[in-house]
């Protein structure tokens, strides 16, 4: 393997029905920082049948090059066709680094491409850096449910690959006046290599509410909330705060009080809002993994020894059924006074 040949940082842009998912745009922002550190080009990779909207969007978010593979066989994600296209692209253009969003399809694609190219992949990263001397990416990820973190290197093979959780990095500001070098590559996957076929897609219920990962403020409830009906107390506080979403611990989700899309943590979403208000949540490590990087954390819990207080900026030791309605009232008054 000739290391010198491998250059530039690629971000795989996952699309759904022709639109790029947020995680890819988040990775462009972090990718730019890393590419600057090694003075490399930042490139987006878009595979699909209908790609124009995605190309325009990544251009506005800022990239140097966009590699585009277009074809009927890429209409929907499929590991055979996408994996084949990606492996061919890598062999042709030889990137040093590939970042992929750690979605279901992203993890699927990552394993396919890494094994095909016989290279290393670090899954579900939550922090990235570059060792300036060797230009190796330092991939950081939690293990053992967040009890331990590991820094991982892929020093002897290229490209070095990693998947990164959604919501860990923030998107940049789009600017429609930006331009990018769009390279359409003529790649196709022969039909006989495609062994699985999508028959039907059953769309999940799109939550009408803001998802926790998209919100500036998250008001989250845990087992302490006690019931499905009681979650209205949490909802009312969220309603008073502009751009707030309701989140939850796994205990509240498992109890069936709120749907899974609200779950924050290791097996839910990662959030980094300006303000996170944890109500009746003990703060188990698996929950902390998903919210510890929120700018300001408030904890309301009746147990003064709850671990959530260790990572909170402000704590109120008290009964959430008393404190949360008072807080809602105080914010309402504040808004009225403004």
């Amino acid at each position: 393997m000739n290391f010198e040949e491998y250059k530039n940082l690629w971000v795989f842009i996952e699309t759904f029905q022709g639109k790029p998912k947020d995680v890819g745009l988040e990775l462009l922002n972090e990718g730019r920082r890393l590419a600057d550190l090694t003075q490399e080009r930042l490139c987006a990779v878009i595979i699909g049948s209908d790609v124009d909207e995605s190309v325009a969007k990544v251009t506005a978010y800022g990239v140097d090059d966009v590699y585009v593979v277009k074809g009927k066989e890429y209409e929907n994600y499929c590991s055979d066709s996408y994996g084949d296209a990606m492996a061919k692209l890598v062999r042709k253009f030889k990137p040093a680094t590939i970042l992929i969003g750690a979605t279901h399809n992203g993890r699927d694609l990552g394993s396919k491409v890494a094994v095909t190219l016989q290279t290393g992949l670090t899954a579900d990263c939550t922090n990235l850096d570059v060792d300036q001397e060797t230009e190796n990416v330092i991939w950081e990820r939690p293990a053992f449910g967040g009890n331990l973190y590991a820094q991982i290197l892929c020093a002897d093979s290229r490209p070095q690959m990693g998947t990164v959780r959604a919501g860990v990095f923030k998107k940049g500001e789009p600017d429609d006046s930006r331009t990018a070098n769009v390279i359409e590559v003529d790649i196709h996957t022969p039909q006989e290599l495609i062994t699985t076929k999508l028959r039907e897609f059953i769309k999940g219920e799109e939550p009408a509410d803001l998802k926790p990962a998209e919100a500036n403020i998250v008001v989250a409830g845990g087992r302490g909330v006690g019931s499905k009906e009681n979650f209205s107390i949490i909802q009312k506080l969220a309603d008073e705060l502009d751009g707030a979403a309701v989140g939850a611990s796994r205990a509240a989700v498992d109890a069936g009080w709120v749907p899974h899309f609200r779950q924050v943590g290791q097996t839910g979403t990662t959030v980094t809002p300006e303000l996170y208000i944890a109500c009746g949540i003990s703060g188990a490590i698996q929950h902390q993994v998903g919210m510890k990087d929120s700018a300001t954390i408030v904890a309301i819990n009746k147990d003064p020894d709850a671990p959530i207080f260790e990572i909170a900026d402000y704590g109120i030791v008290g009964d959430l059924f008393k404190v949360v309605p008072e807080l809602t009232k105080a914010i309402k008054e504040l808004k009225a006074a403004k």
């Binding site: 016989q118 290279t119 991939w139 820094q151 093979s157």
Partner: peptide
């Protein structure tokens, strides 16, 4: 191909 450089809490 991947190596753990270090672990920490």
């Amino acid at each position: 191909p991947t190596r753990v450089k270090k672990t920490f809490t």
